[in-house]
């Protein structure tokens, strides 16, 4: 099947522009994070809510969100920066999507047939998930910490791992490519967010036990409860998707390689990541493991995901070496 080189060229331009727009958005978010009062306010807000929750029971949890208190009629400059950041992120995501669609059209297949494309998909999922999280939680000023790994991944993908648009090799020509890889990409993409949230949780927890640590950064972070909730909810969503991806991978492996499970390095590390996230979910139901330890487990799970993405595909030799 011939590759449409014009479309592929447009896809590449779109990809590069998306990265540039993300970087710009990141700058806006960093300005908001550094100079905005919003962070502090958000932190204060959650703290006060926690106090209420701990003392006497609140009548309901659904007190009107404190997003528009009467004391703050006009938006601050940092606030506006944040909003512009979100707008830029949405623009970046649209360009990103365009790049993926064009790549797919150029090659006449799903646009996740090699490492470059796979990383592009993962990053897109991360950005979209984060935009959804933003709608539910007052954490806009943290966006830079999510965009940073996204931009880094996309940079690595676009330079070292770049692959020109090409048809699929025979082993990948299966409808399972659509199902298995998309599930794995969605799972991994979402897992980036609890990873970041848990890291910030650890920073915040450190700051709370000893205010001298991260003295300037810590107070600007939202409360532990918010970070924990973001990490938990995204993990709970990503875990079944990832599980589905692994199961579909096993079914595909049965058709392609002659066995459904063979401890190929990729399979092994996917199993390890799965076990770690399972441990995360269990740890939250275990006394003494909630909070800090759960966050540490989530960060380890994220590390395993990244390890699976890079080390296993690029360093070890296995059946998944498609880069």
């Amino acid at each position: 099947m011939p590759v449409n080189e014009t479309l592929s060229q447009y896809s590449d331009w779109s990809y590069t522009t998306a990265v540039a727009v993300y970087v710009l958005a990141m700058v806006f978010f960093l300005v908001e994070q550094s100079f905005g009062r919003k962070g502090k306010q958000a932190a204060a807000r959650t703290r006060s809510r926690e106090l209420v929750g701990a003392g006497a029971p609140a009548t309901t949890e659904t007190t009107p969100p404190a997003g528009a208190p009467p004391a703050r009629p006009e938006r601050t400059r940092a606030d506006r920066m944040g909003n512009m950041g979100v707008a830029l992120t949405v623009l970046g995501a649209l360009l990103h999507l365009l790049s993926l669609v064009l790549r797919g059209l150029a090659t006449d297949r799903v646009p996740w047939g090699n490492m470059y494309e796979y990383i592009a998909i993962i990053c897109f999922v991360t950005v979209v998930t984060w935009l959804v999280v933003l709608r539910k939680s007052p954490v806009r000023h943290l966006s830079a910490f999510v965009l940073l790994p996204v931009v880094m991944l996309m940079f690595i993908g676009g330079t070292w791992l770049y692959a020109i648009a090409a048809p699929l090799q025979p082993a990948l020509q299966s409808y399972w490519l659509v199902i298995h890889v998309s599930a794995a990409a969605v799972g991994s993409g979402i897992f980036l967010i609890p990873g970041v949230a848990s890291l910030l949780y650890l920073v915040k927890a450190r700051n709370e036990t000893n205010p001298a640590k991260f003295a300037r950064f810590g107070p600007k972070l939202p409360g532990l409860e918010v970070l924990d909730r973001i990490a938990y909810r995204t993990t709970v969503f990503a875990f079944p998707v990832f599980t589905f991806g692994v199961l579909c991978g096993a079914v595909w492996a049965e058709a392609a390689w002659g066995r459904f499970w063979g401890w190929d390095p990729k399979e092994t590390v996917a199993f390890i990541a799965w076990v770690i996230y399972a441990a995360y979910l269990h740890s939250r139901a275990t006394a003494g493991w909630r909070g800090n330890r759960a966050a540490v487990i989530n960060v380890i799970g994220f590390a395993a995901t990244v390890f699976n993405l890079f080390f296993v595909n690029l360093v070890t030799v296995g059946l998944h070496s498609y880069a």
């Binding site: 390095p265 092994t268 590390v269 199993f271 390890i272 076990v275 395993a304 070890t316």
Partner: peptide, 13 residues
Amino acid sequence: LFLLALAALPGAL
């Protein structure tokens, strides 16, 4: 669970 994850790792390396 952690031990299992840890023990599986050499198999990949």
